[in-house]
Amino acid sequence: MTVEAITGRYLTAEIAGRRQRIYFEEAGQGRPVLCLHTAGADTRQWRHILNDAEITCDHRIIAFDLPWHGKSLPPEGFQTEEYLLTTEVYMESVLKVAETLGLDRPVLAGCSMGGRIALQLAARHPERFSGFVAIEASDFQPAWYDIDWFHRPDAHGGEMGAALVSTNISPFAPEAERWNTLWMFMSSGPGVFRGDLSFYTRDDSLVGRLKDIDTAQTPVHLIVGAYDFTCTPEDARRTADAIPGATLSVMEELGHFPMSEHPAGFRPFFVDALARMQPAKTPEHAD
C-alpha cells in the first residue's frame, strides 16, 4: 500500500470577469514549475512527474485543470454557453493561477495546446516566467478533421476523441499508460475537446510573435515525439527555428502525450529541459 506525495486543492480566481474555481495538484519544494495539460484532458497527465521524487526534491511541480476540465467546474451559467477556448482567456487563466499561488517566475511547461500557450506567454508576458518548456508545441496546426465531430447528440464525443488521438500515441507506450491517457479524453465533458480544438486549430496569432521571444532572458526548449502526427517533429522544428535561440529535442519513441503515455521515456527529456531553464550568461559573466 502506498500514499502518493501529490496534494490536491482548489483556488478561486476571477478570469475574464468571471469567478472560476480551479483545481490544482502539487508536489515538491524548490523552483516552481507550472504544468499545463493538453486539449480534452486534465492534470492527471502530469501524475508521473508529480510523483517523481528525484524531480520534486528540488522543484515544486504544480499542475491545474483549466475551467471545464477535470475537477475544475465550468463557470456559473455554462449550461447555455458554447465552450470555445481563446488565447486571451487561456493566457489569463495561466497568469491568474500563478498569481494566486504566489509563484515567483515559475518555469512554464505545457503540452500540445499547453505548449502553444506557453509560447504565447513567452512572447507576450515573459517577465512572469523564468523559462518555457513547450512539449508537442508548434506555431499553428490547422485541423485535418472536423472539430464538430466531437460534440454531437448522436455519438459520444469523448470516445470519438480518444479514438482520434490514439493516432498520436506511440506503440512504445506501455499498454496501461496508453489506456490511462485515453481515459482522460473519454471522460472529458461534452464539447470541451471541441472547444479546446477551436483554439488549437483556428488561432494562428502566435505565428508572427515567435520572433519577439527573447530566449536570452527566458529560455525556450521544445520537445517533440516522432510518433506525434498532430504536431510532427517538422512542425516543432519550424517553430523552434522561428524563435532565435530556442532549442529542440526529438523523442524517437514517443507521441503527443509523452508525460502520460510513456513516463519513463519522457522523464530524461523533461529533466534535461529543466536543466536548460537558466538565463543565458551575460558576456562579462560567461565562463
Binding site: 472536423d146 448522436d154 455519438a155 470519438m160 480518444a162 490514439s166 506503440p171 510518433y227 502526427f229
Partner: peptide, 28 residues
C-alpha cells in the same frame, strides 16, 4: 507513420474515402 490508419493517410500511404463520420463514430 505506419502505426495508425490516420497516420498512414498523413504520410501519403493511404486514403480514406466515403462517409468519414460513420468511421469516426466507430473509430476505436
Amino acid at each position: 507513420g505506419f502505426h495508425d490508419i490516420f497516420a498512414l493517410v498523413k504520410i501519403g500511404r493511404a486514403r480514406i474515402l466515403g462517409d468519414m463520420l460513420a468511421l469516426v463514430k466507430n473509430l476505436r
